[in-house]
Design a protein around this nucleic acid. Structure first.
Lengths: 127, 127
DNA sequence: GTGCACTATTCTCTTAATGTCAATAGATAG
DNA sequence: CTATCTATTGACATTAAGAGAATAGTGCAC
């Protein structure tokens, strides 16, 4: 029952719950871009790749929805894969040129974010 | 007219607009904790401190609202300051013990976030 | 052959957070 | 006396996220 938002830290910390901070979710979009740049993939496989990146608390339906929205933006494209699945057909996504462009902007934003976080750490350690 | 969310990267990049990624906003809460740990302050002064940290696109009312919510959580407390203002009375906030506790959890989360971003950079540079 | 676990995706409803802007008002300089 | 800067609040609209039900194919054990 992940519930995000204001006051996350205490709720997550005091009880060892599966709540994630809003930060994790806001990394989802660029993370999917990066993963799909590495290689095409479908929702279910991306879910386990997210797990490998310690983004374990994101709800599957959020990932699927995000992929659909990214396809609407034409950052990614997909085809149905009916053969070679271990279950029902899967939708395999790949990055488009526009998606690569979006990833470039996102990369800059991630750099900026790292800088801000580093400044915060500096302030924390100072005190 | 900052509009966040899905597709931020292209909207922000293609036109040089004042749109921020969802990442920036999700740093607001821990940033306010850090700034108030450094020293007590009021909303208006915190706004310029956020500017100094390159978090320029966050709307003032969002900052004020966040402060009020953090006070409800008892992470911070406030008093009205009627003297020594350069305008109307200001509400001066300071960190509570619970706020320090929250900051500790947030610090861990920021470390985790930095790690994830670094992993993403590694993947980006590899490709 | 049927029941179960795993794979795989979509849809919908609810709740929470953000965006935006108007309103209010004290202080100060010209 | 009015424009600008300081300072905060409140309300409303919009967007995103959380959660779970529904659907369905595959493969294995019994």
């Amino acid at each position: 029952m992940p519930r995000r938002g204001r006051g996350w830290a205490m709720r997550a910390g005091s009880r060892g719950e599966e709540i994630h901070s809003p930060l994790v979710v806001s990394l989802l979009e660029p993370t999917l871009l990066v993963l799909l740049k590495e290689q095409p993939g479908h929702g279910y496989s991306l879910l386990s790749e997210l797990n490998a990146l310690d983004m374990t608390t994101i709800h599957p339906s959020v990932v699927y929805r995000t992929l659909r929205e990214m396809e609407t933006l034409e950052w990614i494209e997909s085809d149905w894969d009916t053969d070679q699945t271990q279950g029902p057909p899967r939708r395999t996504y790949r990055l488009t040129a526009q998606g690569e462009e979006a990833l470039r902007y996102w990369t800059q934003e991630l750099e900026k974010t790292n800088l801000i976080i580093d400044k915060l750490f500096a302030k924390i350690q100072k005190g």
